[in-house]
Design a protein around this nucleic acid. Structure first.
Lengths: 231, 231
DNA sequence: GTCTATATGGGGATAGAC
DNA sequence: GTCTATCCCCATATAGAC
């Protein structure tokens, strides 16, 4: 038997493997990782139960593969947009709007090519930020580490007067806006009576960029308590 | 046997019942609803497995009871703070900061009396906003309905020039800031190297109020696409 | 109200034939 | 690579003694 890196645990391009990844993505997005069984996945994919362990070794490894397949191209596009924003600024600090848009747009624009995939990936990632599983969040944030530094550095340059701790707080708030919008898109559509949905992708991106940038630029305020001491 | 409403399905003040609620809250917050079994809960509570079904009828009903016990007093305090903000304004629109603070402060201030309970409830609620379970989110938002209208109305008065759909989007973003901060508190502490944590409760509240109010007040911007048409 | 024991079903993972 | 059959464990829920 020919042994390459690809087929040590199943070929990376096997049709069965792809069908499992697609079915798992759909079910994980719809029901969550924990509530989705391998039996549901293989039934949906139309493959044999044992195929999951052959191609992915374990459910945890399958979860990581599902996340990795989508997050990697998205993060590459984020870094490309960030590089573009940095180039555009020509030595000056990059524009805050461009940095925030570089973070947000790639994941939302998935909906333009394929709304089904876009919605699934949005739900998947939006929920992963709050997932209680011991393996899921570390796996996800492991993939996010490669973009954390470049984005932090760009934001630091765009907002030079913001103390470091305050910058991290506001980045955290901004990620919350994104995560909650991705995970809660269906719910907003319901409570708004259809007034708000994610079909106008570019409009939603600009709404989020607008909101987050305003929050990031908010003047520091002195308030009751030890607020200013902890910056 | 004396039959009152309270003891039709176990007394509401039974010690066993309380121990189950406490253990369930801890485990749900730590591992999530799906990954927590009744066996873990009864082991942690030091009670018999069958006691859960006696006191709560089912796991779903227990989940709802755990959520309800905490959300009800929090929502009462939110409404009280909102009423105070409205009174203070004396006929004029209430101050935006006061409205946002009324929404955010009660759940964060739980940490002041008891950091353990506060953290658990924060994780529980923060994650519930993104929970994939078919029963969890509806149950949670059913409890939130009683505060949705008063807060929406107050915000509409405080931001009269904001179109209705835009207000809903920004409320959604604001909730995202709160939910993600509650659910991701531990993670922010780690990635910030301890620079950011939730122990300075009032400081965190004011940071969030500051960020959200700036986002809510952001000028509308015309951007590429159909942004302004969809307001 | 609380216990033991059990009914009933589903979970992840694997062995070994093909 | 794919299948069947199975191991072993855990889930929720309930019946019925105490």
């Amino acid at each position: 038997m020919k042994r390459t890196i690809e087929n040590e645990v199943g070929s990376n391009h096997s049709l069965t493997r792809q069908r499992i990844l697609d079915a798992a993505e759909t079910l994980f997005a719809e029901k969550g990782f924990e509530a989705t069984s391998l039996r549901m996945i293989t039934a949906e994919a139309g493959v044999n139960l044992a195929a999951v362990n052959y191609h992915f070794r374990s459910k945890d490894a399958l979860i990581d593969a599902v996340i990795a397949r989508r997050i990697q191209p998205i993060n590459q596009e984020r870094l490309a947009m960030l590089a573009e924003a940095t180039d555009k600024a020509a030595g000056r600090p990059p524009e805050l709007e461009d940095i925030v848009r570089a973070m947000i747009a790639p994941v939302l624009r998935l909906r333009q090519r394929d709304p089904g995939v876009g919605r699934r990936v949005g739900l998947l990632f939006g929920r992963t930020y709050a997932d209680p599983n011991e393996m899921v969040r570390p796996a996800f944030f492991n993939h996010m580490r490669e973009i954390f530094r470049p984005f932090t550095e760009a934001l630091r340059r765009a907002l030079p007067s913001l103390p470091p701790a305050e910058l991290l707080w506001r980045m955290h708030f901004g990620v919350g806006v994104m995560a909650h919008t991705l995970a809660g898109c269906d719910h907003l559509q319901v409570i708004s009576g259809g007034l708000c949905d994610l079909s106008d992708v570019e409009g939603v991106i600009e709404r989020m960029v607008n909101f987050i940038c305003a929050g990031m630029r908010a003047p520091l305020v002195a308030q009751p308590g030890r607020y200013l001491e902890n910056l």
